[in-house]
């Protein structure tokens, strides 16, 4: 009987500015990045956590991959300290300025170079761009079935049962592996990185760095020049209308509120 294939899970992560701290320079319309800490995109940490708990239940290995500037290595050492087995950093000036499509394409090329995996987990979306596109595009490039917005998943007999968190319902779907799943923050509570793992995470043995020349792709298919979309302008959203404070006793406030809601056709 053939030996059961060991579970290999790949997780994509992105280093993002902590958007709680981001401000926009009104004169230049550009992000003020100075002094803004970089963090691992929150939902990517959920994806890492899910991969680690699947590994704890079913065995196997977890590889994390990111594309970004050299300092994105910090994000990788952080997830290595959470306990992942290996991390791959794609960094090269040739990758710079890639939109979501070219990012997904580049990631797909790197993933093809890694050992075959049964599952790719991605965070639903990054807090800097909020596009939620890279996961689905990556599934497209790799010809994998995809399930988005996962708020829960169980693995049994080489198939995943995924609970999708949709606007007005939870949808339960089953998908055979290999597959790609994007997860939401509801799926789990990510573990903290551990001091026990710091030595190994920073030791360099678990980290692989790939440049553009390491991928079987001509430079014209990478970065800004290959991207069909680009950022024209960044601006701060206009301040929304100010709220209204309803005065009076509790009864009076409820009465006024109900009238307002009727007036706006929110209730009958």
């Amino acid at each position: 009987m053939a030996k059961k294939k060991e579970l290999h899970i790949i997780v994509t992560v992105k280093q993002v500015p902590d958007t709680h701290e981001v401000r926009i320079d009104p004169k230049t319309n550009s992000l003020i990045r100075e002094g803004v800490p970089s963090i691992v995109n929150p939902e990517d940490r959920n994806a890492v956590e899910e991969a680690l708990s699947l590994r704890e239940k079913h065995g196997g290995t977890v590889t994390v991959i990111t594309m970004g500037p050299p300092q994105a290595e910090e994000a990788l050492t952080e997830v290595l300290a959470m306990g992942v087995d290996r991390a791959v950093l794609l960094t090269d000036r040739a990758f710079a300025g890639a939109d979501t499509l070219v990012t997904a394409f580049t990631l797909s090329q790197a993933i093809r170079k890694l050992e075959p995996c049964q599952l790719i987990l991605c965070g639903r979306q990054a807090i800097d761009g909020d596009t939620a596109q890279v996961g689905p595009q990556l599934a497209g490039f790799l010809n994998l079935p995809q399930v988005t917005y996962a708020a829960g998943l169980t693995l049994k007999d080489n198939a995943l049962t995924v609970e999708r968190s949709l606007e007005d319902c939870i949808e339960k779907v089953r998908v055979n592996l290999p597959a790609l799943v994007t997860v939401t923050a509801e799926i789990n509570q990510p573990r903290y990185p551990s001091l026990f793992n710091v030595q190994d995470a920073c030791g360099g043995k678990q980290l692989t760095i790939w440049r553009a020349k390491d991928l079987p792709v001509p430079h014209e298919m990478l970065g800004l020049s290959a991207s069909p979309t680009w950022v024209k302008k960044i601006f701060a959203p206009e301040q929304g209308k100010k709220g209204t404070v309803i005065p009076g006793s509790e009864k009076e406030m409820v009465k006024i509120l109900l009238e307002k809601l009727k007036e706006l056709n929110f209730i009958q």
């Binding site: 910090e74 050492t77 952080e78 300290a81 903290y192 990185p193 551990s194 001091l195 710091v198 030595q199 995470a201 920073c202």
Partner: peptide, 15 residues
């Protein structure tokens, strides 16, 4: 600071 020192500080700070 070394990578190890920065990561240690980051872990402690978050916790």
């Amino acid at each position: 600071l070394t990578k190890q020192q920065k990561l240690s500080r980051h872990i402690a700070r978050e916790f």
